[in-house]
C-alpha cells in the first residue's frame, strides 16, 4: 500500500514576474526613501532649533530666532483656534448637506449634487481666499460686532477697545480676525467632510432603514436611530480629516489675517496667527538658524496633523461602516 505524500509545491516565478516584482518593490523603496527623507530632514533641521530652545519653544510667543527668543505658543494657539472655528461651522453644514443628499434630495438631482460637492472640494484654496478677503471681510463686520456686543461677557468673544455706547464703532477692530479666517477655512473643508459623510450615510443598511420606517418612525426618527448611529465613525473620521486640512491651510489664511505674535484668544478681534502663514511670511528673510526654527514649527504642525489623521482613520476603520470609506 502506498502512502500519499503531499507533493512539495515550489513557486518558481517567471523572469518577467521577477522583474515586475523587482520594479514594483523598487518603486515602493523609492517612495519610502523620499518620504523618509522629507521626515528625517525636517526632524534633523528642526532639532537644531529645538535643542537650543528646549521647552521654551512651546511657551514663548515671540518669533525672533536670531536673538534666541522664539516659540510657537502664539502661532499654535492661533492655528488651533482657526481650525476650531472652521470645524464648529463646517460640522453642522456638512452633516446637514450629507443628510440632505442621501435622505431628502429628489433622486433626479442626487447624482448631480454629489458631483457638485466633489467639484467644490477641488476648488483651489486661493479662490476661497479671494472671496474671504474681498467679500467676507467687508460684510461680516456687523455680525462680529453684534456677537461681541451681546456675548462679549464670554471671554473669547470679547473685543478690547470697543465702546458699547459708540453708535459708529470703527470696523477695523473686527477685520483680519481668527473668526473670518475660520469661516473661509470652514467653507473650504466642508465639501471634503460632506463627501466622506455622504458616503458613509449612503451605506446605512436598507433593511434597518425599512425596519425603522415599518415600526412607524418618522423620517427623522429613522435617521436618528439608524443612519446617524451607523455613520458615527464616518462623521467623526471625516470631521477629523477636515480638521487636518484646516490646520495645514496656508494661503487663504495668509491672505486674511494680519499676523500677531501674542496669544490672541479674542477670535473676533483684529489680528490672528497660524503656523503655516508664519512659514509663508518669514521663510524669505530667514537665516539658516531661522529656517531651522521654521522647520521646527512646520514639524510641530505636521505631527499634529499626523496624529489627527491616524486617529481619524482608526476611528473610521473601527466603526460599523467600516474601512470601506
Amino acid at each position: 500500500m502506498t502512502v500519499d505524500i503531499p507533493r512539495k509545491l515550489v513557486l518558481r516565478r517567471d523572469p518577467v514576474d521577477r522583474t515586475f516584482r523587482g520594479v514594483a518593490r523598487g518603486g515602493g523603496i523609492a517612495v519610502l526613501t523620499i518620504m523618509l527623507l522629507v521626515g528625517v530632514f525636517l526632524a534633523f533641521r528642526a532639532s537644531q532649533a529645538l535643542s537650543s530652545d528646549g521647552v521654551k519653544f512651546l511657551t514663548v510667543q515671540d518669533w525672533d530666532p536670531d536673538s534666541g527668543k522664539f516659540g510657537i505658543a502664539a502661532v499654535l494657539v492661533g492655528t488651533v483656534l482657526i481650525a476650531l472655528v472652521a470645524i464648529v461651522i463646517a460640522f453642522p453644514l456638512a452633516t446637514g448637506t450629507a443628510l440632505y443628499i442621501t435622505e431628502y434630495a429628489p433622486r433626479q438631482i442626487r447624482q448631480w449634487l454629489i458631483s457638485l460637492v466633489d467639484l467644490m472640494a477641488a476648488i483651489p484654496s486661493v479662490v476661497y481666499g479671494l472671496w474671504g478677503f474681498f467679500f467676507l471681510q467687508g460684510n461680516i463686520t456687523p455680525i462680529s460686532r453684534w456677537i461681541s456686543q451681546n456675548f462679549g461677557w464670554i471671554p473669547i468673544f470679547s473685543v478690547t477697545g470697543v465702546d458699547p455706547n459708540d453708535p459708529l464703532p470703527t470696523s477695523t477692530l473686527y477685520t483680519s480676525s481668527t473668526f473670518i479666517a475660520g469661516i473661509v477655512v470652514a467653507f473650504m473643508i466642508t465639501p471634503i467632510i460632506t463627501a466622506i459623510m455622504r458616503e458613509v450615510f449612503a451605506q446605512a443598511p436598507l433593511g434597518e432603514r425599512e425596519g425603522a420606517l415599518a415600526l412607524g418612525s418618522t423620517q427623522w426618527g429613522m435617521i436618528r436611530s439608524v443612519v446617524l448611529p451607523f455613520g458615527r465613525g464616518g462623521m467623526i473620521g471625516g470631521t477629523m480629516l477636515g480638521l487636518g486640512r484646516a490646520l495645514g491651510e496656508t494661503i487663504a489664511v495668509y491672505m486674511i489675517i494680519s499676523p500677531v505674535f501674542v496669544i490672541q484668544t479674542h477670535i473676533l478681534q483684529n489680528g490672528a496667527s497660524s503656523v503655516s502663514s508664519l512659514i509663508a511670511l518669514r521663510y524669505g528673510e530667514a537665516s539658516p538658524f531661522g529656517l531651522s526654527a521654521l522647520m521646527a514649527a512646520g514639524l510641530t504642525l505636521f505631527v499634529m496633523t499626523l496624529v489627527i489623521n491616524f486617529a481619524a482613520s482608526s476611528i473610521v476603520a473601527r466603526s460599523r461602516s467600516g474601512a470601506s470609506s
Binding site: 495645514g248 496656508t250 514639524l299 504642525l301 489627527i308
Partner: peptide, 26 residues
Amino acid sequence: FARLVRTIVEAMTALPSIVAGLFIYA
C-alpha cells in the same frame, strides 16, 4: 514591507503643503 510603505504614505498625506514647499526650499 508593503504595510510599512502604506503606513508611511498614509502619514505623508498629512504633510501640510507649505512644509513640502519648505523642504524643497531648504
